[in-house]
């Protein structure tokens, strides 16, 4: 296997000079954009461009994985979490550490300068390209698989364990513990029967009155004794005082019926009214 020099084609040069500035711009967008969703979009652009660069750099498998894993899975996960946390969760502008912005900017520029200096001063060997270096000279995915499952098979297994651990960890972390026992139909019924002496009614409330001239929500129904049943009118209307007397039946002033309902259990009052009417008869 003789090392052959690497010729970078004109097409790749054009591709690089078109994509690289756009990538840097999008990455800067991550730094300056206000809303988190726009930052995520900038990052998606950077990652897709990165995949194009991988494919241009003789790594088609990594390019595909980049699109599938990063743009497809990771960034969608980011967007999901943004949706959970609230899309307009914007940055607070108060500085907890004074001058943090300028110090951070300085450190960032310093890091860029150091990295750039190292790259500029390092002596790189002449580029060989993967054509001459491929083990067996086969296409990229197969060659990659040979290295991955040959030299790095143990690391591959460890990565599998890591992925399972991460999945279980995420499940455990986002699991919400139930603080109160679950409300079942049985428990609701038991609670109602237990509250029976306090004037709670077991049955559904009676519906409002339906009459020849009025069947609105605000007219109470008449009981078997001819009394108005105040609880047949919606509680909101009763509190607002918008209840109307039933057109027929004994003239009961609405205000007294509401007062009666306030003082005691209405069921008891209607029951006593029934006994009274029976006694009269």
């Amino acid at each position: 296997m003789t090392p052959t020099g690497l010729e970078i084609s004109g097409g790749e040069t054009v591709l690089f000079w078109v994509i690289a500035p756009l990538m840097v711009l999008a990455a800067l967008g991550l730094l300056f954009v206000k809303r988190a969703v726009h930052a995520a979009m900038c990052l998606v652009f950077v990652m897709v461009s990165m995949a194009i660069l991988y494919i241009a750099q003789e790594a088609p498998f990594l390019g595909v994985v980049q699109v599938v894993v990063y743009t497809g899975a990771v960034m969608m996960l980011f967007l999901f979490v943004l949706m959970l946390v609230g899309v307009d969760a914007s940055d607070s502008l108060t500085e907890t550490i004074r001058g943090q912005r300028w110090i951070g900017l300085l450190i960032g520029i310093g890091l860029a300068a150091v990295l750039g200096g190292v790259v500029a001063n390092a002596a790189f060997p002449p580029a060989r390209g993967l054509e001459g270096g491929d083990p067996g000279g086969v296409a990229n995915p197969q060659a990659l698989a040979r290295v991955l499952f040959g030299d790095y098979v143990l690391a591959m297994e460890a990565v599998g364990v890591l992925l399972v651990t991460a999945a279980v960890g995420a499940l455990v972390l986002t699991h919400r513990r139930r603080l109160t026992p679950r409300k079942t139909q049985e428990s609701v019924a038991e609670a109602r029967i237990k509250a029976l002496p306090d004037g709670v009614i077991l049955t559904p409330l009676p519906s409002p009155g339906v009459y020849a001239r009025s069947n609105a929500m605000d007219t109470p129904a008449l009981g078997p004794d001819g009394e108005q049943v105040p609880q047949s009118v919606s509680r909101v209307l009763r509190i607002r005082g918008q209840e109307r007397p039933a057109p027929h039946g004994p003239a009961v002033v609405v205000s007294t019926s509401t007062a009666r309902e306030k003082t005691g259990s209405t069921r008891g009052t209607t029951a006593s009214a029934t006994t009274e009417s029976e006694r009269d008869a």
């Binding site: 790594a59 060989r128 993967l130 001459g132 790095y152 890591l162 995420a170």
Partner: peptide
């Protein structure tokens, strides 16, 4: 990897991707 004609670089990039995916899952859960 391209410079040295050695696929190990690509394999390492692959591992970085996998570990990054795991890290994203746990980090976002936190």
């Amino acid at each position: 990897a391209r410079l040295h004609g050695d696929l190990t670089g690509q394999v390492l990039a692959f591992f970085v991707m996998v570990v990054a995916a795991a890290e994203v899952v746990v980090g976002l859960a936190i």
